[in-house]
């Protein structure tokens, strides 16, 4: 009897040393993510302007807030959001700074570093459009699900404090093009942004 449980223990130890089969792990292996980032970078390099529509849903509002305009990414680190409706505004994220030019308000410039939690979400879109995996992984756990044509990129904040503000960002797209960005805030609020490439100026 005594020998038996010793043998069992050895067996157990031996088993734990064996490589486990990858069942239950739905994460795509690294190469796919790297390929997606390369596609995104290639698209970014074309310097196209992207049209967007955005809807924000807040539980404390009786109707959703809508806006629309254009996005353009200028390598290496500038994202310009030109809002056309309902009131014109321009937001430029350049390096660590956010410049806000809103009609009827003084031009403001803020240091994203001063608002680390909010900044991560503001920067996330830029990092995706730039195909900058490093920047994404600094703040988020990045998960990619690839279908035949479409892909879905799921960003979960690493910092629990951040998680209190935004629970997740989920992006879907095709090739190097991002089609939809859904930002889920805590308490059921969300923002849905739809991007389309037909814009031309």
């Amino acid at each position: 009897m005594r020998c038996d449980w010793k043998r069992l223990l050895l067996l157990a130890l031996f088993l734990t040393c064996l490589p486990l089969p990858a069942f239950g792990n739905q994460e795509e292996p690294g190469p796919a993510l790297a390929r997606l980032m390369a596609d995104l970078r290639a698209e970014a390099a074309k310097g196209r302007t992207i049209a967007y529509r955005e809807e924000k849903h807040y539980a404390f509002l009786e109707q959703d807030l809508k806006s629309s305009g254009f996005l353009s990414f200028r390598p290496p680190d500038t994202l310009i959001r030109q809002v056309l409706t309902p009131e014109p505004a321009r937001y430029i994220i350049k390096g660590p700074r956010l410049i806000m030019e809103e009609e009827g308000r003084p031009r403001r410039e803020i240091n994203l570093g001063d608002y680390p939690q909010a900044a991560a979400f503001i920067e996330a879109l830029r990092a995706v459009l730039a195909g900058d995996l490093l920047a994404l992984e600094r703040h988020f756990q990045v998960t990619l699900r690839s279908g035949h044509i479409r892909w879905t990129l799921q960003l979960i904040p690493r910092d629990p404090q951040m998680g209190k503000v935004v629970e997740a960002i989920s992006l879907t797209g095709r090739g190097g093009l991002v089609g939809e960005v859904r930002t889920s805030e805590a308490g059921g609020d969300y923002t849905l942004m739809v991007l389309s490439r037909e814009a031309d100026q």
């Binding site: 807030l65 806006s67 809002v83 503001i122 805030e185 923002t191």
Partner: peptide, 18 residues
């Protein structure tokens, strides 16, 4: 404030609005 909430920096504003 509605304008702030529509802006890309809405996470900054959302918690303080009330």
């Amino acid at each position: 404030r509605l304008r702030d909430l529509r802006s890309p920096v809405s996470p900054l504003h959302r918690q303080l609005v009330a």
